[in-house]
C-alpha cells in the first residue's frame, strides 16, 4: 500500500502552516521528513494518519493494505503514549482487544512482538518501571502487533539519550531488514535521517513547503555509525536546513 499526498495545504484560522505538499510514500521504504521547528511536520503526519484533515488537498491510500493488517496507519509517538496503568503486555493487548483478538491468538502475537523488541522478560512491568528506551520499544512492539501497512513516527527517539538512540536505530534497522515496512519518520536529527531514510524530505520554514527530496541508495544494513559517505549527505542536508533554521529562529523572536 502506497500513500500519496497531493497539494496538501493547511491553515489554522489565518495561520498558514503547510503549503502545497505533494509527496509519494512508496511501499516498503522509509521516508524521513526533516525541517525547522514549527514548520508543520507533526501536522503533516497527523494528516497522513487521518487524525486531522487538511484545509486543501488530499491524502490518498493507493492499493489495499495486506489482509492480516489490523490497523493500516499506525503511529509511534514521541512521548510513547503508553497507558501507565497497564503492564507491557496489557498495553499491547489493548490494541488487539478491539479486533476481537484474545486468548491464545493474542498471546501468540504478544510473545512474537515482545521477542522482536527484546522485551520478553519485561512483559509484566508497568511503564513507570521502564527506562525511556524500553518504553519506546514497548510502543514499537505495540505498533508491530497490529501489523501496520505504514508506520507513522513523530520524533520517536527525541526523548532519549544519544546512546539509547543509537541502539534503537540499530533495532529499527534490524526490524526493517527482516521484514521491510513502510514508514514516515519525522525527526529533527539529521543523523537519524541519514541512517534510516531511503529518501529524506527537507521542508522549508513555516509555511512548510518541500524544499528538496534527497535519495540515499546505500542499503540500511550497510549504513554504519560514522560512515563518511553518510556524513557527506548529512553535511549537505545541514547546508539546506541551516538558513531555514536560522530564519525560523529569527521569526520566532519577532513574534
Amino acid at each position: 500500500m502506497d500513500i500519496r499526498l497531493s497539494g496538501v495545504s493547511h491553515s489554522y484560522d489565518q495561520f498558514e502552516v503547510l503549503r502545497d505538499i505533494s509527496l509519494e510514500i512508496p511501499s516498503g521504504k522509509i521516508v524521513c521528513i526533516v525541517g525547522p521547528s514549527g514548520c508543520g511536520k507533526s501536522t503533516l503526519l497527523r494528516f497522513i494518519g487521518g487524525l486531522e484533515q487538511p484545509t486543501k488537498g488530499e491524502v490518498l491510500q493507493i492499493g489495499n493494505p495486506p489482509k492480516d493488517c489490523l490497523n493500516p496507519l499506525t503511529y509511534i509517538f514521541q512521548d510513547f503514549a503508553l497507558l501507565p496503568w497497564r503492564s507491557v503486555r496489557g498495553n499491547i493487548s489493548l490494541v488487539l482487544e478491539d479486533h476481537g483478538i484474545r486468548g491464545a491468538r493474542a498471546e501468540g502475537i504478544i510473545a512474537d512482538v515482545l521477542a522482536r523488541t527484546k522485551l520478553t522478560e519485561f512483559h509484566k512491568a508497568l511503564p513507570k518501571q521502564l527506562s525511556g528506551g524500553m518504553k519506546q520499544r514497548v510502543a514499537i512492539a505495540r505498533a508491530l502487533a497490529v501489523n501496520p501497512a505504514v508506520m507513522l513516527m513523530d520524533e520517536p527517539l527525541s526523548a532519549l539519550d544519544s546512546q539509547t538512540r543509537e541502539l534503537l536505530m540499530d533495532d529499527l534497522v534490524n526490524l526493517w531488514t527482516r521484514t521491510p515496512f513502510t514508514a514516515v519518520y519525522v525527526t529533527h536529527n539529521l543523523a537519524e535521517a541519514v541512517r534510516l531514510g531511503h529518501s529524506i524530505v527537507v521542508m522549508s520554514r513555516r509555511p512548510g513547503e518541500i524544499r528538496e527530496v534527497v535519495h540515499l541508495e546505500t542499503p540500511l544494513d550497510q549504513r554504519h555509525y560514522g560512515d563518511s559517505a553518510l556524513e557527506e549527505k548529512q553535511k549537505y542536508l545541514w547546508q539546506l536546513m541551516r538558513e531555514e533554521a536560522r530564519a525560523a529562529d529569527a521569526e520566532l523572536v519577532h513574534v
Binding site: 494518519g49 487524525l51 490497523n71 496507519l73 499506525t74 503511529y75 509517538f77 512521548d79 503514549a81 497507558l83 496503568w85 489493548l94 490494541v95 482487544e97 478491539d98 505495540r142 497490529v146
Partner: peptide
Amino acid sequence: SLIRMGQSFNLSWMSIVRKIVLPG
C-alpha cells in the same frame, strides 16, 4: 495524547472511554 493514541489504533469510542478515560 493517550486518547489520540487510542484513536490512532482505531479503538472504538466505548473502548476509549472504558480503557483510557475512566482509568485516567
